[in-house]
Design a protein around this nucleic acid. Structure first.
Lengths: 150, 150
DNA sequence: GTCATTGCAAAGGATTTGCAGTTCC
DNA sequence: GGAACTGCAAATCCTTTGCAATGAC
């Protein structure tokens, strides 16, 4: 969905993100597509308008925008493959602090299904629900940090 | 969950996976833990029992076991980060053939919640549902391959 | 015996880091 | 003016590939 330059600037300011030409271009490219691009895809797209753009800026900017909550990673915890010997239907709690992954068994979640219209010709073989948040330990660690600051 | 050596061998044979000491050890390590280890974690764990074990074998074996359906990757499509400029609640259809990611908007899926007991102290900030399967194009491509074989 | 699997080393690809110069607030 | 950002290069980390030796069936 196309977002106007002024709106981009407004969003950046609202989220305390410095406004630069490069960032606006990266964010614009990302919001204009539904293809869930990689950093490399964005680099190539934006480089057309701004030939000086470097990969580093793309990675750095994506980090900034993600922290600001303006952008999301589709595949949370993508950087290393994590394996599971349990191949029965189940779901996961993923800690954003320590990357711990805990299992959730829930029959209700196993039953989720898409309507025909939503599936759009997609042949669905399975699904998984990821809950994102903070595990008990990471919450306590955070509380302790807060206390120490008092 | 601890799986007996004979049972491991039986599962391998059932899935036409050659039985070797290394594979059994890797699979045993993976089924004995709920920590969703990385390839490196498994390498280190198994190396204790089998000092000659190499990383390559771990990666290769995980590939074999995954294809056989004995093992699963938690983070499908982990190898590259994919970004999303849409930060409103929504979900994804992920094609196992071409890695395409399509958006699913569904209010029902947005409402999912865990029971207190299931959350086990976890502070849930959000959740996402991933549907895995094959997009229309990949299905057609597959059909064409089949036809050509006739 | 044959072919898949293993182990070692090297290559590959994605992402991060170091640092000097530049830009925004 | 000062902190944050950018661009280039080099480094790092995870994973894959090439190849000869080994082992399962």
């Amino acid at each position: 969905m196309k977002v106007h330059p002024q709106e981009i600037e407004a969003r950046f300011r609202r989220h305390a993100v410095r406004v630069t030409r490069q960032r606006a271009a990266i964010y614009a490219a990302l919001t204009e597509t539904t293809s869930h691009p990689t950093a490399e895809d964005l680099y190539r797209t934006v480089k057309r308008q701004q030939p000086l753009m470097s990969r580093n800026t793309v990675y750095y900017t994506l980090g900034v925008l993600r922290q600001a909550g303006l952008v999301r990673e589709v595949n949370v915890g993508h950087h290393v493959a994590r394996f599971d010997g349990n191949v029965t239907a189940h779901h996961h709690l993923i800690c954003l602090g320590c990357s711990r992954i805990m299992d959730v068994m829930d029959d209700g979640l196993n039953q989720l299904a898409l309507s025909h219209r939503q599936a759009r010709g997609f042949q669905v073989l399975g699904h998984r629900v990821e809950f994102h948040g903070y595990c008990a330990e990471c919450q306590h660690a955070q509380e302790n940090v807060m206390k120490r600051r008092e």
